Amino acid sequence: MPQPGDMHGRAALVTGAAGGLGRATAIQLAKAGADLCLVDLNADGLDAVAAEVRALGVRALPHAADLSRREACPAAVAAAVEAFGRLDALCNVAAVLFTDHAADMPSADWEKTLAVNLSAPFYLIQAAIPHLLEANGAVVNVTSCAAHRAQAYSAAYCAAKAGLSHMTKALAMEYMNRPIRFNAIAPGGMMTNIAMKMKLPADIDRSLFGRVAPLRGMVDVEEVAEMTAFLATPAASSFHGACINIDKGITAD
């Protein structure tokens, strides 16, 4: 796996940083020397991760926020810039997943899925762009193999992740001639809080849901974190508009 470039003297904002892939990404960036604004709804989890990255010799700002609220997104970027005087990388890792029959999905679950998984990355990017342009910085959006392969009982999640993947490419085209990079990672199933808390309807057709079961097992969170951090650093200067699948072949067919 590529190693993150030198981030000493640089700052990054990581969402979903209280656990799972967000925490692992933050630690990889801290090892590369980045100061970190850690954003999540889980304040206690953020404090624990902040202590971990500070032990690696970098500064950390835990910033508890509900990213489903539009105003929380520019506020998080502003907090990072105020703390560190700059912003060099934005890693949109935070996500939610609600599974249900499409006909039964509550509107609140649909709206929250799109708010956290699609709208929040856009509003964070929108606020971060001026700072990232100044720093020749990077955006890394974590999408999913569900963006490329339909997953039954997950219509909202698939729609949001497909939108995030295509939005990444659209932004890469829009900023083709400007000093900022946009890339995405599309992982397969990982042992994160999202996977462990997923509750399927009792009466699903298992043969349909089983179509996305990984034949080679779950994806290693640390491998995805290493690639996410790599894309956020200057070492990945040739990557722009890419969506990298890390899914053990689930989207190969």
Rank of each mutant, 00 (worst) to 15 (best):
Tyr153Arg: 01
Ala236Gln: 05
Val58Tyr: 02
Leu114Asp: 04
Thr233Asn: 02
Gly188Cys: 04
Trp110Cys: 01
Glu82Asn: 04
Ala24Met: 14
Ala60Glu: 06
Met191Lys: 05
Ala120Phe: 11
His101Phe: 15
Ala60Tyr: 05
Ile180Phe: 09
Thr168His: 06
Arg69Pro: 00
Val77Lys: 03
Arg54Gly: 10
Phe122Gly: 04
Val58Trp: 01
Gly217Asp: 14
Phe209Thr: 03
Thr15Ser: 15
Lys248Tyr: 15
Glu226Ala: 11
Leu215Ala: 12
Ala95Glu: 11
Asn177Ile: 05
Pro74Phe: 09
Ser237Asn: 04
Val219Leu: 07
Ala80Pro: 09
His8Lys: 13
Val212Gln: 06
Ile244Lys: 00
Met198Phe: 12
Ala64Arg: 00
Ala78Glu: 14
Lys161Ala: 07
Ala11Asp: 09
Gln151Glu: 13
Leu41Ile: 15
Gln126Thr: 00
Val221Trp: 11
Val53His: 04
Asp205Ile: 01
Ile250Tyr: 09
Ala30Glu: 07
Asp47Arg: 00
His63Leu: 05
Asp205Tyr: 01
Leu118Ala: 06
Ala242Lys: 00
Pro121Gly: 07
Leu200Met: 10
Met191His: 00
Ser165Ala: 15
Ala78Lys: 07
Ala55Asp: 14
Ile125Trp: 01
Lys197Ser: 12
Ser207Gln: 13
Val219Ser: 01
His131Leu: 06
Ala34Asn: 07
Thr99Ser: 14
Met173His: 08
Glu82Trp: 05
Ala225Pro: 14
Leu90Thr: 10
Arg59Trp: 03
Leu171Tyr: 07
Gly241Lys: 00
Ala108Phe: 15
Leu61Glu: 02
Asn92Ser: 12
Val14Ser: 08
